[in-house]
Structure formats: C-alpha cells, structure tokens
C-alpha cells in the first residue's frame, strides 16, 4: 500500500476544517500511515468472489410509513445550541469556500 503523502494529509485536514501546524501534520501523517498499514493486512485476503460490501448486516428495504410524529418543543430543539436567538440557531459568519 502506498504511503499517504503530506499533501493528502493537508487536503484531508482542510476538508475536515482542521487547522494543523506543520508539526501536527507530520505527526498525523505518520499515525495515519500506521493505521493504513494495519488495515493493509486485509489486502492479503482473497476477495475475488466477494461483492463489494457497504453494510455488514444483510438487510434491505427498511421503511417507515409516511406518518407524522410529534416534533420536539422548540426550546428543547435549541437547548444544546452554543448560541441561539429566540427560536433560531445562530451561527458565526459563514465563509464561502
């Protein structure tokens, strides 16, 4: 398995909105590579005849009927928000990427 490059670490950090120092990027790069190596053991298994699996539980078509259930009272909806005004959540300036 090819090692994860410093560029990839930076890209993933950017996507995750993590502002990392050069030192942290180095350290995390090393750690991520170690994790990937661990998972690389799976590559040794022959999966020739195994379809790509996204779900470990063999279930399909789990539905609910189109029925309305009670929603939360608005004060409970807002309760965990770090910042709220009246019945709204309030968030810091949104920066368009």
């Amino acid at each position: 398995m090819p090692a994860i490059t410093p560029e990839e670490v930076r890209h993933v950090a950017m996507l995750a909105h993590l502002d990392l120092s050069a030192e942290e990027l180095d350290r995390i790069g090393v750690e991520l590579n170690r994790i990937l190596e661990y998972f690389a053991q799976l590559q040794k298994i022959d999966t020739e005849d195994v379809p790509v699996t996204s779900h470990a539980i063999p279930m399909t078509n789990v539905f609910r009927e189109d029925e309305v259930q009670a929603s939360l009272p608005v004060d409970e909806v807002i309760a965990n928000a770090p910042d709220g005004v009246d019945e709204f959540f309030r968030v810091p300036r949104i920066i368009e990427e």
Binding site: E67, V68, Q69, A70, S71, V74, V77, E87, F88
Partner: peptide, 17 residues
C-alpha cells in the same frame, strides 16, 4: 423522521433528534 413536512411553520418547530 416523522416531523411534519410543512412550508410555513414557526422556525424550528418541526425538528427532532
């Protein structure tokens, strides 16, 4: 989820976990 699908309800009145 079972929250009502409605256009003009009071803000955040149709929310659940």
């Amino acid at each position: 989820c079972g929250c009502r699908n409605e256009f003009a309800a009071p803000p955040n009145s149709l929310c659940c976990p």
